[in-house]
Design a protein around this nucleic acid. Sequence first.
DNA 1: GTTCATGCAAAGGTTTTGCAGATTG
DNA 2: CAATCTGCAAAACCTTTGCATGAAC
Lengths: 128, 128
Amino acid sequence: MAALKYSRQRESIKEFLMTRKDHPTADVVYENVRKIYPNISLGTVYRNLSLLSELGEIQKLSNFGGADHFDGCVTPHCHFMCKKCGQVLDLETEDLNEVAEKAVKNFSGKITECDIRFFGICPRCMNN
Amino acid sequence: MAALKYSRQRESIKEFLMTRKDHPTADVVYENVRKIYPNISLGTVYRNLSLLSELGEIQKLSNFGGADHFDGCVTPHCHFMCKKCGQVLDLETEDLNEVAEKAVKNFSGKITECDIRFFGICPRCMNN
DNA sequence: GTTCATGCAAAGGTTTTGCAGATTG
DNA sequence: CAATCTGCAAAACCTTTGCATGAAC
């Protein structure tokens, strides 16, 4: 496995994700990190987002529809997507993964992960 | 809203999906329906898969990484994706959506849907 | 004959990749 | 100096769309 070397771009991407409580797409990350490193390329952003999520330092939220979203917070929690504005929010829930895995019947494979997502209208869109 | 007209292509796409218990991607649907209608185009397959899922006659599973998968069975059930072979399978579970929605705390928006997905190793890959 | 569906091909959006040069250790 | 990372651009991938023709009603 390749050794990891420091890169200021990667550091900046991670820092940016930490400061956001929404869950930006790669493109949004790119636009923002570009304010600090104007020459950074989209390819580098994608490469580092992939790398960071393999390392478990960020979370990749695949397929809430269009582009992937990224979450700087890796403690397990559920997500909610607003069908009106497309925003992805964190949800506070009771511990669900255990419950979910217990609910599976007659399966002879091995379950290693469970992902629960909610859809609906977000608080902000409720008032419009 | 536009009136719906019969098309043998749409019929064939739906029939094909009904006979499959796995959850093929648009591309697999295309390859198979092509055996019956060699001139059908990928665009038509996509258009009809979209239409059928809007009509509620099939289910679109856009949550598993790469291409979308389609399920001819519309009764609610959970899905499992094998991390080794990429196959998407049905899972038999207790009724979970209700449990899940009750577990949400302190949320002032409105939840209309909940989607639970499982990942791991499928029975077939366990034996290899 | 009007409307909708099709086939084709081009374009759209998102993500990955090859490569030469820059950076890190 | 060797290994990794970057910027750039091209390509890959999946899906949607415009348009002229064909099928359904």
